[in-house]
Structure formats: C-alpha cells, structure tokens
Simulated scan of single mutants.
Amino acid sequence: MKNIFKLGIFAMLIMSAAACNSDDLTVLTPSKAAVLTAPAEGTVFVFDKTKATEVATTFKWDAAKYEGAATAVSYEIEMAKSGTNFQNATVVSVTTDKLKAVTVGELNAAVLNCGLSPFEPQDADIRVKSYIGEGGIVQYSNVIKISVTAYSAWDNWGLIGSATPNGWNDPDTNLDYSLSTKKYSYTGPLVAGEYKFRLDDKWDTNYGDDGNNLSLEAGGANIPVAVDGNYTITVDFTAKSYTITKN
C-alpha cells in the first residue's frame, strides 16, 4: 500500500513538472530570411594594401524574422568563390546589428581565405546567414555577386626583363607564393634574354645575380636565359638564392 502511495505521488510530480514546462516552452520558427541590400549587385572592389584600415564597404540587410518570443538574432556575412554554392565559404564578419562596416584589410583577407587569387579581378558571392542560439534555426539571405581584385598577404615579387612574357614593360610577371615553403616560384615560358626580380612592380627593391651563380644581390646584374623554353624558377628571398630549371 505504501509503495502504491509513493508511486502515485511520484506520478503527480512528473505531471506537474511537465505542465509547468509546457507553459514556459516557447517554440521559435523561422519566418523571413534577411534581405541583403548593400553593396549593390556587380559592385567592383580593387583593394589597395596601403589603405588596409580604411572602410571598404558597409554591408546592410533587412532583419531576419522568427516567430515566437523576442530573442537576439546573430548574423554572419559569408563570402565564397562565385558559382560554388558557398562551399569553402569564409565568414567576413559577425554581428547582431543590421549593418556592418568592413575594412579593406578584412575584406581582402576574406577573398584570399575563400580561395580566390590576388592581383586579378574575380567574382565572389556574398550572403547573410542569420541564426538564434548557438548556430540554431538558420536562415540565408539572397546572394549578391561582386567583383574583387585582392592584394596578397605576402610581398608581391615578380619577374621583369626581355626573357619574360611582358618584356621590360609593366606589369611584372607575378611570382606565386607557397605558404608551406615560404618560397616564390614561376613556371611558364621564357625566351632567350635576361630578367630580374623586383618588388611591387617598382625598381625601388630589385635583385639580380652579379656572378650568375644562383645567389641574389640587391640591384645586381641581369640574369641571362640562353634558350627559349618552359622553365621553373624558385626563389628564397630570405636566403637570397634561387634555382632555374628548364622543364
């Protein structure tokens, strides 16, 4: 009899707790996604490394809506290579406001992080992700396509000279940079002639090879190329050394 009485009390407590919980429980459901309104579709950005701290643009959107009790909505501005359906997307910025000013440096970093190359105009897709709680109940805004020309986060070294694709004319033939080896490289055509390495398409900082012995000297002699062909050049500007191999 005592056991039956105890079970009855226990059941009543469970029912009471459930009733209280059902009264307090608020169900939140997505109602309307944010609408990205700025920047405009097709806006062209050409980033300048010397203006990294200046505001590049202000992203603006109409607020996302959720049915239920009022709660804070978080927003992430996402960027991805155009046409990839936001695979390998990167987060430009996070806020709880309906607008966000982003600097040249921040937007440039996002361009590189989502896999776009520096120094050439490319298309990127932008959208706003809204959510409440710890990433729950997500909605995505419309997508806006922009054109971006980024600068590299590393020094901009290039080749110039009669042996290179552009000859002695600007711009230089840019060298690729490896984050793993910290070295620069070029693979492509060279013709019989000569070349030098220079920084930022200017003669202020340039390297040649006075002894033609694969070591670099500031302002050194032009480096000769004997015959036309496809070559790979690898450069270590820290060690002041390079290799050149005909493929």
Score class of each variant (00 low, 15 high):
V225G: 02
K65L: 07
K129L: 14
Y242V: 09
V128R: 06
I244W: 01
A110L: 06
L107F: 12
T26C: 12
Y207W: 13
G219I: 00
K196P: 03
G8A: 15
V148P: 01
A163W: 04
V92N: 03
S178Y: 09
A34C: 10
V104G: 02
D125N: 12
V104K: 01
D209S: 11
E106V: 07
G219H: 04
T43D: 06
G219L: 05
G135D: 08
G8M: 13
D201C: 13
N174W: 03
G133S: 07
D228Y: 02
A192M: 10
L36I: 11
Q87Y: 05
P30G: 06
K240P: 00
K100N: 02
N166Y: 03
L116C: 05
K81G: 01
L28A: 13
M12W: 12
V46M: 07
S178L: 10
I9N: 07
Q122Y: 09
N174Q: 06
I244K: 07
T57D: 09
V92F: 03
F5W: 14
D176R: 11
D210G: 03
E67K: 13
I77P: 05
M79N: 08
V94W: 00
T53V: 04
F10G: 15
I132V: 15
V91E: 00
I132W: 01
S185H: 09
D170W: 10
N142H: 11
M15Q: 12
Y131H: 15
R127M: 08
P121T: 14
T96L: 03
G68R: 06
V128F: 03
K98M: 04
A80C: 04
I144L: 12
G220I: 00
K49T: 05
K32C: 08
A109D: 08
K183E: 15
T29W: 12
A163H: 05
I14Q: 14
A11L: 15
N247M: 08
A40W: 04
N85Q: 08
G42L: 09
P118E: 02
M12K: 13
N156Y: 04
N113M: 08
P118L: 03
T43N: 06
Y131C: 14
D236L: 06
A221R: 00
F47D: 11
G8Q: 06
P39W: 08
G208H: 12
K6P: 07
V148Q: 04
S180I: 14
T173I: 08
K100T: 03
K81C: 01
M15H: 05
A153D: 12
D209L: 04
V35Q: 12
I160H: 01
K196C: 13
M15T: 11
